[in-house]
Every structure is written in C-alpha cells, then in structure tokens.
C-alpha cells in the first residue's frame, strides 16, 4: 500500500509539477489521494449520523401513520402536489449542478466550477422561495403545528400579501440588498473576484423571489389546465379537516381552539400532530438547505480564489456529498408527505 501510494505520487509529480504542490496538501498525508480518501471517509461518517438523525423523524412519521391512517388520507388535500413536484425537480437539478461542479474541479475547469456552484446556490434559494409560499399559505389558513392548529373555515385562497410571506422574505430581501450593494462597490473598485462572489450571492438572493413568483404562478397555471377548482379545493380541504377532527375525538372538537394548548397531550388533534410532523421534517430539511448554502458560498469564494485543482478538490466533493444527502432526504419526504393518500 505504501509503495503504491508513493509510486502514484511520484508518477503524478512527474506529469504534473504545477498541481503537485497544492498549498492545501497537508504534510501528514502520503499523497493527495490519501488526503482525499481520508476526508471522504470522514464526510461519510458525518452523513451516516445525519441519516440516523433524520431516521428519528421518519420513525415519528411511521408510528403516527400506523396509528392514524385516516389523518394521512386527508393530508394530501392540504399539500400542493404541483409545488412539491416543482421543488423536487429544482432540488434534483441542483444535485446535477453540484455533481457537475465536482467534475469541473477534477478537470480544472475553473469557470465551469464557479458557474455550477452559483447555479446550485440559486436552485437552493429557489427551493426555499417555493417552500416559503407553501408555509405562508398554510399559516395564513391557520394550519400550524399541534399546539397552534386552528384551521380557518372561511379561508379563500391567497389574496394580497400575507404577513407570514413578508416575514419569510425579509432575510432574502436583506441579503439581496447587501450583496447587490457589495457587488456594485466591487465593480466600482474593479475587484473582479469580489464582483463574481457578491454577484453570485445577489443572484442567489434574487432566486428566492423567483421561487416565490413561480409558486404564485404554478397554482394559476394548474387551475387553467385543470379547470379552476383550486380555491374550492382549499376550502373543502380545510372543512374536511374540521369534520375529520369531529369524528376523531369529540372532546377535541368541542373545545374552543384557544384552549387546546392548555389541555395537555390529549388536547391535540391528530391533524395538528400531522402538521407538527410535517413542519418538523420539512423545517429540519430546510435548515439543512440553509447550512448547505452556507458551505457552498464558502466553496464559491474559494473557487473564485482558484484554490481547487485536479489534485485538491476535496471540499467540493465533500460538500457535494452533503448536498446529495439533503436531496436524498427530500426524495423520501416528497412522496411520504405530498403524494400518499
């Protein structure tokens, strides 16, 4: 093993004098290959803890589904399948661009690496924009987690701006303003590297609002195609949730909604617990998206600086693995929450 590692190092040294002495090659490794493999093993161990962590949420889902199948039969009425599908495609595309970023780094395509990372960031932001519409739509109609679950029977689709949507958009708007100003300043100072980074991040922040716009447009388009019963479906579903909770347990339904949190564990309606699980699973997933965006932004800074070469691209690969794991979690969340009736 030692011999082969050394020989491969000397071989690559002979053919690639320029890449061999990457400043990020740590001296305690025998070769860049060994450094890469060690980092990758560490990343996989981290991903395994992530899978086990998410499996706790999937177990909560499975147990609740086993005990209350009737809640899940109606749950699909609350969740917008078309938005879930669009988000799935967006996330799959971001996985493709992330895998492509690794390929670019391996082939020393610096410009391609920057483009791929920026696209991945923008897709992540688009995903969150669509998610923000979904969350705001539910919160507007009184659908919260179990302790605050009071669906409004008279809610008729979205009219005007929702305060929840504004709240969720504020961080993205702040980020857009800050990065756009920084990009303009960088342009004025002719700082090319900063311009690329801040421009990419401003584009990413803008993508959030593209996502919001898409999510607003998708139901309209679906209505036009299906025949315009979207708003009716929303009302029916909310009423369905009410009647269901009446059938479920009469003591729940007869309590005024504002007393529900004080009544202890028995006071929570099953539909409310379903949405607790929904918000916990998608919320933790969204936090992982945000964390992924943070590390991809770090990769963007480093790739603009030119840190990554065919013998040193470990960070791109490891972040890629993490990003694909987030995608894997969504691949299971999407059918479990949105599709199953």
């Amino acid at each position: 093993m030692n011999q082969t590692a050394l020989s491969s190092e000397s071989e690559s040294g002979a053919s690639h004098a320029d890449h061999d002495h990457s400043p990020f090659f740590a001296h305690h490794f025998e070769s860049p290959q060994q450094q890469f493999d060690a980092g990758k093993l560490g990343m996989w161990l981290f991903l395994i803890t992530e899978i086990l962590f998410f499996s706790g949420l999937f177990v909560a889902y499975a147990v609740f589904r086993a005990r209350h199948p009737e809640v899940f039969a109606d749950a699909h009425l609350y969740l917008d399948k078309s938005l879930g599908t669009v988000n799935t495609v967006v996330l799959l595309f971001s996985s493709l661009t992330m895998a492509w970023a690794v390929r670019c780094a391996q082939l020393n395509q610096q410009r391609g690496l920057i483009v791929c990372l920026t696209t991945t960031l923008a897709c992540a932001s688009l995903f969150l924009g669509i998610k923000a519409i979904e969350y705001a739509h539910k919160w507007d109609s009184g659908i919260f987690w179990a302790g605050m679950y009071q669906p409004l029977a008279d809610y008729h689709g979205d009219h005007g701006l929702s305060p929840f949507l504004i709240g969720l958009s504020v961080p993205a708007l702040l980020a857009l303003v800050i990065f756009a100003v920084a990009a303009v300043l960088a342009y004025a100072r002719r700082a090319r590297q900063q311009l690329i980074v801040f421009g990419g991040l401003a584009l990413t922040s803008l993508a959030f609002f593209v996502g919001v716009g898409c999510a607003k447009a998708v139901p309209v388009v679906v209505d036009a195609m299906v025949g315009g019963d979207h708003d009716q479906a929303t009302v029916v579903s909310v009423e369905g949730g009410r009647t269901e909770s009446v059938q479920e347990g009469s003591e729940d339904a007869e309590q005024p909604p504002d007393e529900a949190p004080e009544t202890g564990p028995t006071g929570f309606s099953p539909a409310g617990i379903f949405f607790s699980i929904y918000f916990a699973m998608t919320g933790v997933h969204a936090i992982h998206i945000l964390a992924g965006m943070g590390v991809i932004a770090w990769l963007l800074v480093r790739s603009v600086r030119g840190d990554f070469t065919p013998t040193y691209f470990g960070p791109v690969d490891y972040v890629g693995l993490y990003w694909h794991l987030v995608d894997l979690v969504w691949i299971f969340l999407f059918p479990l929450l949105y599709l199953i009736q």
């Binding site: 890449h19 860049p32 082939l107 065919p310």
Partner: peptide
Amino acid sequence: HHGIGHVIPA
C-alpha cells in the same frame, strides 16, 4: 484528467 478520484462522464 490526471488528478485523483474518478471523473463521471458528462
């Protein structure tokens, strides 16, 4: 490509 790791074809 002459670096480390496997490059997935486009």
